[in-house]
Design a protein around this nucleic acid. Structure first.
Lengths: 161, 161
DNA sequence: ATAATTAAGTCAATATGACTGACCTAAATA
DNA sequence: TATTTAGGTCAGTCATATTGACTTAATTAT
């Protein structure tokens, strides 16, 4: 199987090379999140808090439903973490025109934290990406995009329209 | 800040575009792991089990210490998950020449599972990557590699020498 | 030969992030 | 008026991880 594969595939599509991609994704993603993790720890927050802060910062006045769609967790899971952020005044809640909905936005304090966390990740990406051609960078983004499942591709487009 | 950035940076290095990379990493990594997760669930295993199986499969006769270096978790964390895999005969333990060490390898049962899980991820990467040029694929891998912290780059090289 | 270090393991307590299931309220829509 | 939708809540559970303290056995250094 692997032998046949080695014969038929070009080098960069060999199973062995593909496995390296698996590992690169694992290592790079872990290191990508480790920077913010250290700051969050001091506030007794975790990665779940980061994700909420990120997406609320991304789309002001996002509703609970929209947030759940992006995060793909249950509302019970969201509840605890979100309430902490609201109680500690990183996020402020208001009522939508549809009075059943709630709209979430970052407070000034929340924006400050969001900025602090995002800056780490943005700078890391910038530092890395700077060395590459526009062609390579676009390829990188397109490959990542193609790895997303159809439904979530739509979600990605929605938050970026 | 962002305005200045927009003026000085080429489009593909704008903060807004960089933020898309943050999201692409989040969405793609989540979907990348979701396939194996479904199989693991049936066995009452989680992602932690997957990682152990993957790296034991990658490097036969890996020691506990080496495995901890790769996974970057505590031995107490490893213990519970690894013991499950050993008890359920996915992994077999033997003693090294240095009798303090233990060597881990996959049983036939473990190899079967490893293969099942890896195949999902390998095929996913292949499906995606097929559409791209060698140049793009190499760029993709290099960018991911550059996102890894120095120490972990060494670990990556070690398991791939 | 003894002391120090290393590899591995264990016990206990704790935190975080997630889940299911059941149930509730209020508002909007059919 | 009935149904659906948005959101919330209570309770219990599970998986993954942590810190800290301590043990055993084997290897290495003095």
């Amino acid at each position: 199987m692997t032998d046949l594969n080695s014969l038929l595939s070009p080098f960069f599509l060999n199973d062995k090379e593909i496995r390296k991609v698996i590992e690169l994704l694992f290592f790079s993603y872990r290191d990508f999140t480790s920077g913010p993790d250290k700051i969050l720890e001091k506030l007794n927050f975790g990665r779940a808090h980061h994700r909420i802060i990120y997406f609320v910062g991304k789309k002001n006045n996002i509703t609970i439903k929209e947030l759940l769609l992006v995060l793909q967790i249950t509302k019970q899971s969201l509840s605890r973490v979100l309430n902490q952020l609201v109680n500690e005044k990183f996020i402020i809640v208001s009522t939508g025109i549809d009075k059943r909905t709630k709209k979430l936005s970052l407070t000034e304090k929340g924006e400050k934290l969001e900025n602090q966390l995002s800056t780490i990740q943005i700078n890391k990406i910038k530092r890395v990406i700077n060395k590459y051609s526009e062609e390579n960078i676009n390829g990188f983004k397109e490959i990542l995009y193609d790895m997303i499942e159809t439904d979530n591709k739509k979600t990605f487009q929605q938050i970026n329209d």
